[in-house]
Design a protein around this nucleic acid. Structure first.
Lengths: 145, 145
DNA sequence: TTTAATTAAGACAAAAAGGTCTGATTTAGA
DNA sequence: TCTAAATCAGACCTTTTTGTCTTAATTAAA
């Protein structure tokens, strides 16, 4: 699996929030945890990080929970992933070298550059809006089956 | 970073072996460990796994070490990676679902399919021969700098 | 046959990732 | 003002990954 559990939990959680009816304000983490079968306290920590990064907002107390901090069109999938996996998760060297570029390439550099740019392009184009729309219109799942 | 340490150590080790002069037979693991700055005992375990998988052969005792089990042209990079990261490392669902296919896709399925096929194609085309040649002819590195 | 050089095996330790628990704090609403 | 419902904070635990250490087994060559 390419992504860590943290990352998958985070993505599924924001997608869940993004596909809720617009009249809902804060969504309780307990609800997300139950619906998506993600450990509650673990999810709480992950979402706290996303809140610190400015992707979501949280409110304590009764009627509290989390909501998206920006319109879904402005919440980029690549940015969310990189905030969890690290900025250079997709831009780094496939053989793990810290400085690998055209001037000083590793043995797979040239071939990997083309692919990683496509991955970044694909993920950079995907926002919560496009994904949420697709999930709602086509009934795509957020749950393991 | 996409790959685990195990996987990077393994790839660099077999590339080191693959770029040695053909008159050399068994290469001591200690030499690989020192040259590539990989922890010796950790590398020994990783290489034992590669030997069990049939990628390399080992010999104990004086003048022992490891050597490739097949011609470099038959040692496929994708196969080596998958033997370490798992068979479905690149073929699996990007959102981590166990059953994700055209009939029952996740929200990123269609876009990810195209990319993962390219990754598999690229890595499937790369053998130790092509990489070793490139490393030797172009003086590409196996070392952190 | 002895010795030195090597991998194999397995116990152990350290670090990172994943997950649990308890209590403090905050908030809306009765 | 009180209470119930929520996040926040931090200690703690478990599992996986990464790495270390010691000893045994094997081998080539002196």
């Amino acid at each position: 699996m390419i992504f860590s559990k943290r990352c998958l939990h985070a993505l599924r959680a924001v997608l869940y929030v993004g596909t809720q009816p617009p009249e809902r304000d804060y969504i309780p983490i307990r609800e997300i945890s139950t619906k998506l079968d993600i450990p509650f306290h673990f999810l709480t920590k992950i979402l706290k990080d996303l809140a610190d990064q400015g992707f979501i907002e949280s409110s304590r107390g009764a009627a509290g929970g989390i909501r998206l901090a920006k319109p879904t069109a402005e919440l980029n999938v690549k940015e969310i992933i990189e905030s969890i996996e690290g900025e250079d998760y997709f831009s780094g060297c496939i053989l793990g070298f810290s400085k690998c570029d055209a001037a000083n390439p590793c043995a797979l550099h040239d071939r990997w550059v083309a692919i990683k740019e496509e991955i970044q392009k694909m993920l950079g184009e995907e926002h919560l809006e496009s994904l949420s729309t697709r999930i709602q219109e086509q009934g795509l799942r957020l749950l393991e089956m």
